[in-house]
Design a protein around this nucleic acid. Structure first.
Length: 455
RNA sequence: GUGGCUAUGGUGUAACGGUUAACACACCAGUUUGUGGUACUGGUAAUGAGGGUUCGAUUCCCUCUAGCCACCCCA
């Protein structure tokens, strides 16, 4: 065993040496890994606010939270998301670990939720199972505004029901959360029917585009053989009229698909969700069928900017991953994109109330005592702050001022000897000496009074 | 992954092939050795990394890295 250890250690050491010697990242300054971001306090406020809202709405619509690992077996995504998709073909952070396993840092959330549904026998839970998640996703793409390599998504999934109301509810709460934050959003929606419908439609579409070959760009020509539906999504202005005249998928939907879609639209109408029908809307992930939709910011052309989110029905996924046939639908939203929109619309998270009291101390003994005083006030329900690491009274009051507290309590040598504290009104600078035993009550009394006056 | 643009203190900007890289905000300290907001004074701190051209490069050239924009795609 010790021999093995030594061997392994030298191996790993060599690996590290290689990293050190490599040309990349030799500078003495370290930078963020490409496409990743620190979320600093000022941005964190938006994230926390959004998280609270998502959690609140999720629980009132009885979704339970699920967390799945950031690492999954690569095959989960190859099978679940689809071999042919860009996500799987070129965007996954995949590697072989020390034990020889093929692992991937998850590029999306739905496949893992489906995996968990199967693995934990959720089919025997009361159906449908309603879950929500919030977490990091990773995709190896070229970063751009609104596109990162590590980003955050939240999402809702309902597994175990094919009812059109499920589709509608997913869309409804998505809309509800975003409009609740103050964003104007619109849902672009379409139905892509079943695999059979699509198969038939694809044939017709390829035939159609073949007759227009001369106008197709190189990219579109490639898509024609690989994934013809994608051409419908093209931003190429020269292609728009051709796309407009292309056969529409709706005409190739089975009666059942049509009925389901009409029901979804009906419910959404009832719920007053603003929607826009987009017959060209297709999605990049293979697991969708029936309803597909994207979430867009109202003001923008939904063909230009980045979608805030997207989702749809994925009735085949659970079975594809080895479970029993289980109809399901879900949505995923880009948290960074939502935050960017909030900032752009100048919608700020609710400001936290500033603390009421600041405890300032002078001298070692007072510093110690102020810890107890701080705790006493905190337990009494007073919002209290401090800057115990600062020495001078001046700098402490400066901080108190920046925090916009109403009162400062000053505790120094003199006060310790007398068993008192100094209570300073920060607005008018009036100071009073108060018995240290009575200070908490006194503070509470004054704060209550202020509240009443305010009202 | 392809093409284009960009990179100066913590932040936002300035400057020039040539002395010590300028300004504002922020930060720290002092004027006041136990008292904040205003004011004044001082201080810390930068040319993304590596190479080349040059007597001399932050400036010109190359490579890398990162960001932005378009494509691809997506959240």
């Amino acid at each position: 065993m010790p021999k093995k250890m030594v061997k392994k250690n030298t191996k790993e050491k060599n690996k590290i040496d290689e990293v050190v010697k490599s040309n990349k990242n030799r500078s003495s300054k370290f930078q963020l890994v490409r496409g990743t971001k620190d979320i600093l306090p000022s941005r964190q406020k938006y994230f926390l606010w959004l998280y609270d809202e998502v959690k609140r709405i999720a629980s009132s619509y009885s979704f339970d939270k699920i967390e799945t690992p950031i690492l999954e077996h690569t095959n989960l995504f190859v099978r679940g998301v689809g071999k042919q998709t860009d996500i799987v073909e070129k965007e996954m952070f995949s590697f072989v670990d020390q034990g020889g396993d093929n692992l991937t840092l998850r590029p999306e959330g739905t496949a893992a939720v489906a995996r968990a549904y199967i693995e934990h026998g959720m089919l025997s839970w009361p159906q449908p199972v309603k879950l929500w998640y919030w977490g990091k996703m990773l995709r190896h793409e070229r970063p751009q505004a609104g596109r990162l390599r590590e980003f955050h998504q939240y999402g809702f999934e309902i597994l175990g029901s094919s009812d059109a109301m499920v589709d509608a509810q997913i869309i409804f709460i998505t809309y509800k959360i975003l409009s609740g934050l103050g964003l104007n959003v619109i849902i672009a929606i379409n139905s892509i029917g079943t695999v059979e419908c699509r198969h038939q439609y694809k044939k017709v579409l390829v035939d159609y585009f073949r007759t227009k070959r001369s106008v197709l760009s190189d990219v579109a020509k490639k898509q024609l053989t690989k994934n013809p539906l994608r051409i419908l999504d093209s931003k190429d202005p020269g292609l728009q009229s051709v796309i407009e005249q292309a056969p529409q998928i709706f005409d190739y939907l089975s009666q059942e698909s049509k009925d389901h879609f009409m029901k979804v639209l009906d419910y959404l109408d009832e719920l007053d969700v603003p929607i826009i029908m987009k017959p060209n809307l297709v999605r990049g992930l293979d697991y969708y069928n029936y309803t597909v939709f994207e979430v867009w910011n109202n003001e923008e052309e939904s063909s230009k900017a980045a979608a805030l989110g997207g989702g749809g029905r994925y009735d085949g996924l659970v079975e594809l991953l080895g479970g029993r046939p289980t109809p399901a639908a879900g949505v995923a939203l880009g948290i960074e994109r939502i935050v960017a929109k909030l900032k752009q619309a100048e919608i700020a998270p609710p400001t936290e109330d500033s603390p009421d009291i600041f405890v300032a101390q002078l001298g070692e003994e007072a510093k110690r005592k102020s810890l107890l005083l701080f705790e006493e006030l905190r337990l009494a329900g007073v919002k209290v702050s401090e800057s115990l690491s600062k020495e001078g009274l001046k700098s402490q009051l400066e901080i108190a001022n920046k925090l916009k507290v109403k009162y400062a309590i000053i505790l120094g040598q003199k006060e310790i000897l007398d068993g008192t504290v100094m209570l300073r009104d920060m607005e008018n600078g009036i100071q009073e000496i108060v018995d240290i035993k009575k200070i908490t009550n006194e503070v509470k009394k004054r704060l209550d009074k202020r509240l009443k006056i305010k009202k």
